[in-house]
């Protein structure tokens, strides 16, 4: 009899399965006006763009996000633009990136803020106008054990940090550039100890220029973690100079220059 019951359970599971698929939640891009606006009626494809996020984060203030968009150089339709959204944040915009093929690869690492458990959506548009999408739910289980103090940071924009491979592996071969700048990235959503909202102040723009040509420009929103961190690839063909530039909402700016040397590729 146990056997029959088991069979019956299997059968039921089978019968119920299609229903479950039909009632599954809509893809993230359908749930967000901002994403639908950008797509303009197009339906994004789901291959070709991968993201990595923790399944569970114990600290929503700083969640590592990796975007893997593949090669730019040898691709017929390289990715030109990427947008990151956090569907459950008070402002779902997180980050926007415009890429030049000189980056070599559409691979990025950053750290973002997630207010609560939610889905992170990354959309990309390639040179042919086609869209790609990747999404992942993240459970945010903020642990009191790891809670940060609520002291507002009134430090102004600090000195940038930049690490470039020296030398880059070879002409046209991508190496990782890491950037970080000290900045509170005050969201404007948070109360200070006096109960009043702490004034918003975030870095808005970041760009990277190789010998005067913009190879990457980024738009940060409030959900980029304090002290914005962004790592990207760069595939220089020849020696040159890299200029990195940050500007915050108050108009304050910082820049950094790094010499780019290209190795022999051995």
């Amino acid at each position: 009899m146990g056997w029959t019951l088991h069979r019956l359970a299997m059968l039921l599971a089978f019968l119920l399965l299609p229903a479950a698929v039909v009632t599954a939640e809509k893809p993230a891009w359908q749930q967000l006006d901002a994403a639908r606006d950008w797509l303009g009626g197009e339906e994004p494809a789901s291959g070709g763009l991968r993201i990595e996020l923790p399944l569970v984060s114990e600290e929503g203030m700083s969640v590592p996000l990796e975007i893997r968009g593949g090669e730019l150089g040898n691709s017929e339709a390289p990715i030109r633009e990427i947008r990151v959204y956090a569907l459950g944040n008070p402002d779902p915009d997180v980050l926007g990136l415009r890429l030049d093929p000189a980056l070599g690869r559409a691979d990025f690492s950053t750290r973002i803020r997630l207010d609560e458990s939610q889905t992170v959506l990354v959309l990309a548009r390639d040179a042919s106008g086609r869209f790609l999408a990747a999404e992942q739910p993240v459970r945010v289980a903020n642990s009191g054990c790891l809670a940060r103090s609520d002291e507002p940071v009134d430090a102004p924009m600090g000195a940038p940090r930049v690490a470039v491979p020296d030398p880059f592996p070879g002409a046209g071969e991508p190496g990782e550039v890491r950037t970080l700048i000290l900045h509170p990235m005050e969201t404007g959503f948070r109360e200070g100890p006096d109960g009043k909202p702490v004034a918003r102040r975030i870095i808005e723009d970041f760009s990277a220029e190789l010998d005067g040509e913009t190879v990457l420009s980024a738009r940060f929103h409030a959900a980029v973690s304090a002290n914005p961190y962004l790592a990207f690839r760069l595939a220089p063909r020849a020696d040159g100079e890299l200029r990195l530039h940050w500007r915050d909402e108050t108009g304050e700016e910082r820049e950094a220059y790094r010499e780019v040397r290209v190795g022999s590729g051995e």
């Binding site: 600290e59 700083s62 054990c145 790891l146 940060r148 103090s149 304090a226 002290n227």
Partner: peptide
């Protein structure tokens, strides 16, 4: 590797 830790203050 983190910017904040348990019982930091």
């Amino acid at each position: 590797a983190k910017d904040a830790f348990s019982k930091q203050a």
